[in-house]
């Protein structure tokens, strides 16, 4: 699956909104979409990690994408959704919830409609983007979710923790 994604960006994307912008995640990364629910705060985590939820008996961490992208924090409402994604973190398949303003649709984006991400001027780190999809009259920013999750900040947190652990035990 991953190979497929790497080879070609063409495919289905789940699109969602953050503010007025459209973002897309490759649909195969998506596990499911759920409404907002109570999140248990976990101390000693970065700001964008909102905590954990109980997803049918599984405890999964929740990341607020707005905060991750340095956008203003927004109160959650009934439109706010959590997109549960399957990602590889440090080589293992993990589930992670991403808080988005609201989900939009699943759309097929042809390879010819995808342009590489701009080198500068984008609101968010270009490393997080795989490209810009043009569908109808909209531009969808295609996110590299693994890149986001494995970004330095995130990894640094975990690594830091791991070190701590080893030092104690």
């Amino acid at each position: 699956m991953l190979e497929l994604q790497v080879n070609s960006q063409e495919g289905k994307y789940l699109t969602f909104y953050l503010g007025n912008e459209d973002y897309g995640i490759p649909i195969l990364k998506v596990k499911e979409i759920i409404g907002m629910m109570d999140i248990t705060y976990v101390p000693r985590t970065p700001e964008f990690i909102k905590g954990v939820i109980n997803l049918r008996g599984k405890i999964i961490p929740i990341m607020d994408l707005r905060l991750k992208f340095g956008m203003d924090e927004k109160d959650y409402n009934e439109r706010t959704c959590i997109v549960v994604v399957e990602v590889l973190i440090n080589g293992s398949q993990r589930h992670l919830g991403i808080v988005v303003d609201t989900v939009s649709e699943v759309m097929n984006i042809n390879g010819k409609d995808i342009e590489p991400p701009p080198q500068f001027g984008a609101k968010i780190d270009e490393n997080f983007l795989t490209g810009m999809g043009k569908v109808k009259d909209k531009v969808v920013m295609l996110l590299d979710i693994e890149q986001i999750v494995n970004s330095e900040e995130f990894v640094a947190l975990f690594n830091n923790m791991r070190e701590e652990e080893t030092s104690i035990v």
Binding site: V42, G57, I59
Partner: peptide
């Protein structure tokens, strides 16, 4: 007891979580 998951494995002052 439920394991907290790999992501938080390093938060070792929590042994896990429960619902």
């Amino acid at each position: 007891l439920k394991p907290l998951g790999e992501e938080f494995k390093n938060l070792n002052f929590f042994s896990g979580s429960s619902i």
